[in-house]
Nucleic acid binder design. Structure first.
Length: 255
DNA sequence: ATAGACAGCCACTTTACCTCA
DNA sequence: TTTGAGGTAAAGTGGCTGTCT
């Protein structure tokens, strides 16, 4: 049992919450006793001191070309050198598997440039790029997948904005056309009303004329008392333009 | 022609890490 | 100085499709 393990047994700084027995998360001393515990693991792996963690968590900006995965492997190697126990090794693997890779600026730039050139990679290109960047081909592949997703998302946002603007423009146009239609309807209605009014007046005038069956002359009956005889050929014109004139004349006659 | 293995991609999700209030 | 929320990006997962045997 290593010193770290001993320390963990003496001073168990773990928070536990779980169901069943998790032998991997138990210190060896507890494992040996097969303690049944409920635990929430919140512990710093014994092989990682504070400096190691801090260094690992701040790769960006570092001039080192070493990747997280490499570091992980280094850590694994270190750990394996110090610990022969396979259970502890598994625990270490679990911790490393989800440590997040932070790409350096150089790596990001090179990946971006390759992406500009071709958004998908064939296996050879992937391998070459991975070697160039000191990354795993899988990491390059994942980066390209995520990059494609980001591009698509951005394009969707752009499209969405464009469609929104189109929609606004069409709504405005629709409102404008509706208004125009409404105005046209109103003026048409007014015109119709005016026509009806003038027709009505003409009809009224026509109703006041009677034709004498014997002499074929129109007689305008103004009132019960006064009548005037008008020559049909001269005063009744088919021409609508003259109707107003006639109406005026009729009024003169009436007086 | 068909079934199964496999690889690659995508959509969605999880997780580690960072920034900022 | 600490802390929690929210954002970002790497990585995990599952489904789909095309290719090969």
């Amino acid at each position: 049992m290593g010193d770290d393990e001993e320390e963990a047994c003496k001073c168990n700084t773990r928070l536990g919450l779980g169901i069943g027995v998790d032998e991997f998360t138990l210190p060896k001393c507890d494992r040996a006793k097969k303690k049944q515990v409920v635990c929430l693991e919140l512990s710093i792996p014994p092989h990682m001191n504070r400096e190691a963690i801090d260094a690992d968590y701040r790769i960006e900006g570092s001039s080192s070309k070493t990747t997280e995965l490499d570091k992980c492997n280094i850590e694994k190697k270190k750990f394996n050198d110090n610990n022969d126990d396979s259970d502890s090794n598994n625990n270490n693997n679990n911790n490393c598997s989800r440590k997040k890779l932070r790409l350096t600026k150089e790596q990001s730039t090179l990946l971006e440039e390759s992406f500009k050139f071709h958004s998908t990679l064939n296996p050879t290109q992937k391998q070459t790029l991975a070697e160039k960047l000191n990354l795993l081909p899988r990491q390059v592949e994942v980066w390209f997948q995520n990059r494609r997703a980001r591009t698509k998302l951005k394009q969707t946002e752009v499209d969405c904005e464009f469609l929104k603007k189109c929609c606004e423009r069409l709504s405005d146009e629709n409102r404008r056309l509706k208004k125009e239609v409404e105005e046209l309807r109103r003026s048409l209605k007014l015109e119709q009303q005016q026509r009806q009014n003038s027709l009505f007046i003409q009809l009224q005038k026509a109703a006041t004329l009677t034709m004498c069956p014997s002499c074929n002359k129109f007689t305008k009956v103004v009132a019960a008392t006064t009548t005037t005889t008008i020559n049909s050929t001269s005063t009744i014109s088919a021409n609508n333009d003259n109707k107003e004139k006639e109406a005026g004349a009729a009024i003169d006659v009436v007086t």
